[in-house]
Simulated assay, not measured.
Amino acid sequence: MRSKLFVPGSRPELFPKALASEADALSFDLEDSVAPARKAEARLALRDFLLSGALSGSTKTIIVRINAPETPYFAEDILAMTQAGVHMLNLPKPRDTNDIRAASRAMAEAQEINGVTAPIGLLVNIETPYALRCSHELAAADPRVVGLQLGLGDLFEPLGIARRDVSAVRQAMFAVRMAAGEAGVFAYDAAFADIRDEAGFLAEAEQARQFGFIGKSCIHPRQIALANAAFRPGDEEIAHAQRVVEAARQADLQGVGAYVVDGKMVDAPFVRRAEALLATATRLGLLAPQDVTEARP
């Protein structure tokens, strides 16, 4: 899920175009991009699209950003959007862990009503001071939570923090990544509003990847290729990971706990990272499954 394209729920003419894009994931939005007067219209249009069969055969990750728990749209959004083919609901502005659990309960009820048997996860937004401070508690609040998504605009703007301040961005990224790591879920990077600044988008995406985020949100199709490039494992990274995994296999056979690969000391944490990178490379078609050597016999 290197790239995730936002698609306004009130723009159904964009749905097929988004589905045909190079984005790994689509985030259909019922929240900020939809005016209050059009919430019901957008919900109905998106529900019809989800039920139309248009998603059949698609390999994209399908996400719907619903409205926040304190809004009058929350319950109806969950009931309408908990449909087959949807992989996650994106929960904005959670006020506490009770909001996470309430969303999960409502999703379970909606799955039963709608006859949905495949699991649907919760992607939780970290976009308020409370959410940043308590991000691990939010991530660990319910088994349905699969990831944390950073929202820098909502987080920074009300506090007067410059959105382009690299130090502030890095601190927020690091906090979210640590919380996600502790809870065992993924971390996903924020949107970048300046569509014309491709260098700025790419630099922020590369920073996010260095911090262990799995991808970046895109608000315009021109950002998709940038995100895909930033989160693509490089050829030398793949080759190094293969050497690490093979060295681990040999070390296991010899009963060795730590060893040297490419002049660097390697042990179990490095092996886990190498295995994860090779899994990503395989998923992206950069590596044939038979080219991946298992680290453990």
Rank of each mutant, 00 (worst) to 15 (best):
L5V: 00
F6P: 03
F6Q: 01
V7T: 04
P8M: 05
S10A: 14
R11Q: 14
F15Q: 09
L19D: 05
E22T: 13
E22C: 01
A23W: 02
S27N: 11
D29M: 08
E31V: 02
E31Y: 10
S33M: 06
S33V: 00
V34I: 08
A35K: 12
A37K: 10
E41Y: 05
A42R: 03
R43N: 02
L44I: 11
L46R: 00
R47Q: 13
D48H: 10
F49S: 02
G57H: 06
G57W: 09
T59E: 15
I62F: 10
V64P: 00
P69T: 00
E70G: 00
T71E: 09
Y73A: 06
F74K: 05
A75Y: 03
E76M: 03
L79P: 02
T82A: 11
Q83F: 01
V86T: 08
P92C: 05
P92R: 00
D96I: 02
N98A: 14
D99E: 06
R105D: 08
A108G: 15
E109N: 06
Q111P: 11
Q111H: 01
E112H: 06
N114D: 06
T117H: 14
A118M: 09
L123W: 04
V124L: 02
V124E: 02
N125F: 05
N125I: 08
Y130P: 01
A131N: 01
C134T: 04
H136Y: 14
A139E: 03
A139M: 09
V146I: 12
G147Y: 10
L148K: 01
L148G: 03
L148D: 00
Q149I: 08
L150Q: 03
F156P: 08
A162S: 14
A162Y: 09
V169E: 13
R170L: 14
Q171S: 14
A172V: 07
A172F: 05
M173D: 03
M178W: 00
M178E: 14
A179R: 01
E182D: 15
G184N: 02
F186L: 12
F186M: 11
F186A: 13
A187C: 08
Y188E: 01
A191F: 07
D194I: 09
R196F: 10
D197E: 05
G200N: 06
A203M: 06
A203T: 13
E204A: 14
Q207W: 11
A208S: 12
F211P: 00
F211G: 03
G212V: 01
F213I: 04
I214M: 12
C218G: 10
P221C: 07
R222C: 14
Q223S: 07
A225R: 12
A227F: 09
A227W: 07
A230N: 08
F231S: 00
P233W: 09
G234Y: 10
Q242K: 15
Q242L: 15
E246F: 10
A247W: 13
A247G: 15
A248E: 09
D252R: 11
V256W: 04
G257L: 05
V260S: 12
G263V: 04
G263Q: 09
K264S: 13
F270A: 14
V271L: 02
A274Q: 04
E275M: 13
T280Q: 13
T280D: 11
A281G: 10
L284D: 10
L284M: 15
G285H: 04
L286I: 02
A288D: 12
P289Y: 11
D291C: 06
V292Y: 06
A295E: 01
